[in-house]
Write a protein that binds this DNA or RNA. Structure first.
Lengths: 229, 229
DNA sequence: TTAAATTATTAGGTTTGCCTAAATTTTAAT
DNA sequence: ATTAAAATTTAGGCAAACCTAATAATTTAA
């Protein structure tokens, strides 16, 4: 029984909306079938099929062969799912002792629970938080998403200092690697030296001096007070 | 990806297991297709079909035309779902301010989330509780279900006193009616008089004298110190 | 600019879980 | 004991969401 004029969506539809949203965030205007196919671990043919369904429901604009974009309504729905996902992640971390590399998988399931009261209560319990355990912003109830101007640590220059505010790669292996190095959201750093050849950084972090690979730096979002130069 | 030799079940399969479990509790040895059909709001033909699938997976013993019973493994799985349902109900009530008539619907969804760590954490957070908000016992991790000897208030005789320990009907309307009368789990009572004609009770409850219909009394589980008679 | 390679779509299948209608078995009543 | 009623199962379909294989459009590169 569904009392809403506002339709409800299947888990699969929700996953598509979320995937399109994330790929749009990555820059492309017009998300390609192949990218969705990869993101969703489904064959391209399946993606085309679902895209058509979403287009029929006015959740996406679709032009054959030229990819897909969220409509305003589609974006609103996607943001709501992202909101739920990130709130659940934070709940798991803060109230149930999950580590930041453990929250994603379970949140993938919890995000599909249909109860406005439930998610609003979780939001309240958490104190209307702004960011999830990976530093990603949590959309508010109205779909407003804070757009912090974050940059990648790999773009910083010697002399720059700042704070880690997020991770790009959220894989368990990367997050556990960060744990091992005691790097977390909020950790402060100063760049001492950057090797021109391979981008290897000498970086002050946690009162220690560390050699950080370019690959690692390219997966850390930072907020900097740029050095005067 | 499923790492368990122990299979995982679809939501629908889980709902069937749970429904069979509940109907077995109601007494019948051999749950009828028609009862499952009613409980699950599905047509009898659909039930027969699913029963066969569960029988193939050794979750139920099935004899055509003579109903279905859980196997030992089926019972174990059913208890696990019941456990999750009741823990979620209590979590919603205790940590998110849900009223006892609001918890069931959401728990119906949450019970299907697949994460042992999640439910164990909730269990721990709640302090390994023994009962859900309706007074029903919560199976432990090993599938042990406390079997309290509860009886119905409607079976009590004048002079009996005791405590409300559970509700049989868990519909919103009944639960809200109880709220209105300030009757809850733990509420004490003494029966003053019982009308032979229609079972209407004069009952001391909440320091007030109340007329309680037989129908209402037949939906309240109690623990009594029977009057010496 | 045209052919080859890549990408996307269509066509036709599969599985799950539901349905209706028809056939069968059990149960109840005379 | 027989028949009518009720319950159950079988048979055949449908929609969702996936798949493979074949076809078509676009892009790239010679």
């Amino acid at each position: 029984m569904c009392f809403y004029t506002d339709l409800m969506f299947t888990q699969s539809e929700e996953n598509y909306l979320k995937a399109i949203f994330h790929l749009e965030q990555e820059g492309e205007a017009g998300v390609a079938t192949s990218n969705l196919s990869e993101q969703l671990q489904a064959k391209a043919a399946s993606v085309t099929e679902m895209i058509k369904k979403l287009a029929d429901k006015n959740l996406v604009d679709y032009q054959k062969y030229y990819g897909v974009r969220l409509t305003e309504n589609g974006r609103k729905q996607a943001l709501n799912i992202v909101r739920k996902h990130r709130l659940w992640e934070l709940f798991l971390a803060e109230h149930l002792g999950f580590k930041w590399d453990e929250v994603h998988e379970v949140a993938e399931q919890l995000e599909h629970i249909k109860s406005e009261k439930l998610i609003d209560s979780i939001d309240k319990l958490l104190g209307y938080p702004k960011n999830d355990p990976h530093g990603d912003p949590i959309p508010d109830k109205n779909g407003n998403l804070e757009k912090k101007n974050k940059s990648l640590l790999s773009k910083c220059k010697p002399g720059d200092s700042g704070v880690i505010i997020g991770v790009k790669d959220t894989s368990s292996s990367f997050l556990q690697y960060l744990d091992k190095q005691h790097i977390a959201i909020g950790t402060k750093f100063t760049i001492q030296h950057k090797e021109p050849f391979d981008g290897l950084l000498d970086i002050d972090i946690n009162t220690k001096q560390l050699k950080m690979s370019h690959k690692m730096a390219a997966n850390l979002y930072v907020e900097t007070n740029e050095s005067s130069s």
